[in-house]
Computed example of a mutant assay.
Amino acid sequence: MNDSDTPVSRWSDLDRPPLNASALRRGLIRSGGLWTSLDVVPATGSTNTDLAGRAAAGLAEGAVLVAEEQTAGRGRLDRRWTAPARSGLFFSVLLRPGPEVPVRHYGWLPLLTGVAVATGLARAAGVDTALKWPNDLLVTVGGEERKAGGILAERAGDGAGDGAVVVGIGLNVSLRESELPVPTAGSLALANAVSLDRDTLLRGVLRSLERWYGQWREAGGDPALSRVQEAYAAGCATLGRPVRAELPGERELVGEAVAIDSEGRLVVRTGDGERHAVGAGDIVHLRAAG
């Protein structure tokens, strides 16, 4: 396997050098730490799919799989996620929360990951990353909110009964305006990040995820005790604004997003004052009247 330890041409694109897998391992893998292995591959269809396959074979918790290019990356509802090679961070991690965390709390893993990514990027890139419920990462470009990344958490059936979960993260780093898949997309470069060094950014995000995940697991997955619920609400751009929830079955719900409940659901208050907990669906941020 070519894991980018010795790239064929390290200087083929000075703006987008390959990741240094050896340096990343030295900086992240330590005795007693969460991260146990880290592989960088030149290209793959989906890091989530690949890592889920390895999980089924009994791979240890803390495995990290990074792709320099992802040709069939998936978001929620099987939406495609593609970007030029080495223009972003496309990686998945394998987590096994264990019996101390009830399965009912697993729904917090993508939200927890959002908090970790936003916290890590604030330190490593100097970018204020907001969270759009449930799994989008937003940056501000020219005064507008734009999606720069997303998170996808999936159960990985391995027959061991220990609840393996693969969490995938896709983040646009150096994409230029002309390379954006849609006009509403963004990147750290367009948000004027102080650093676009992907090695630095990946280390920052993984160290932040290790802290938040450890805190959450020590609290038995309790979102309040671990302070994940509080942190998510503080960084969530969806709360306090009018939204349209596009629900399964072609249903819609329009109202104000007022809270994140204990199960990680978005609470929407409609015009009649009723509160509705939304657990699945697309959320559209609406402009306030006037």
Rank of each mutant, 00 (worst) to 15 (best):
E61R: 00
E69R: 14
T71W: 01
T71S: 12
A72K: 09
G73L: 04
G75S: 01
R76D: 02
D78P: 00
R79T: 11
R80N: 13
T82N: 04
A83G: 07
A83S: 15
A83Q: 06
S87G: 07
G88I: 05
F90K: 05
F90T: 14
F91H: 12
F91L: 13
S92W: 04
L94W: 05
P99L: 14
R104L: 15
R104W: 12
L109M: 08
L111V: 09
L112K: 11
T113N: 08
T119A: 15
T119C: 11
G120P: 02
L121D: 00
A122Y: 06
A125V: 08
V127S: 10
D128H: 15
T129N: 12
L131K: 09
L131D: 10
K132C: 01
K132P: 00
N135L: 03
D136T: 11
L137C: 07
L137F: 11
L137H: 04
L138I: 14
L138W: 10
G142D: 05
G142T: 06
E145I: 07
K147I: 11
A148E: 10
G150R: 00
I151W: 09
L152N: 01
E154N: 00
R155L: 14
R155E: 11
A156V: 00
G157R: 13
G161M: 09
A164R: 11
V165P: 09
V165K: 02
V166K: 12
V167E: 05
G168V: 08
G170M: 03
L171Y: 09
L175I: 11
